[in-house]
Amino acid sequence: MNSSSYSMVPIFYSLLKASGLTLYYSVAIVSLGTLMGLILAALYSTGRKIFKAPISLFIFLVRGIPMIVHLFLFFYVLPLFGLRFPAIYIALVGLSIANSAYICEIFRGGIESVPHGQTAAFKSLGMSYWAGMKEIILPQAMRNALPPLVNWWVIMVKLTSLISVLSLRELTYAGREMSTFTGRPFTVLLLVALIYFCICFPLSRFGDYLERRFSYIH
């Protein structure tokens, strides 16, 4: 096969270029999804029905639908209502929303694992719900939520591969393209795997660092 005459360098270069988009989506979706999840969890924890009911419904819906179907829905259904957005935004918003539901659950678990006495203590000082949330509950909830949160962040990085179905040329898309094009799927996909690992590994290490930072028994 003449394809075997391709050298490794341009393949690697092409994959690196595509991994830029993967990295961009990872950062954007991790930050947006985490922020949205945090807000949802804080609202849910007020215990008010007006927040609890729609958030529960949202989480049930998202959890019940595969993320890939979720993306397709955004991509094909929104235009039916005259809402047309470039695929690049659909992917960003779709994945962030879907992830926020899972992250909300992680934070909610973290918040609920903070002993009830902590709430009684900040309330008895006259602190408001939101002040207590910010100063007392969330820092402790964060610590409890960190291991599952970092775990989910790593999953999210890998889930960015889903946006390839919207023909966005991120790492997985480029990998498939290159393996067909060069006829060397093993080499190419090994490189793809290596690049994903190089993104995820520091993130895991960062998670370990955060866990140490947030531990308060010095």
Binding site: P115, G117, Q118, A120, A121, F122, E135, I136, P139, Q140, R143, F214, Y216, I217
Partner: peptide, 10 residues
């Protein structure tokens, strides 16, 4: 309170 409820992160 009976079980102190100090803020452990402060």
């Amino acid at each position: 309170f009976q079980d102190f409820n100090l803020f452990p992160h402060k």
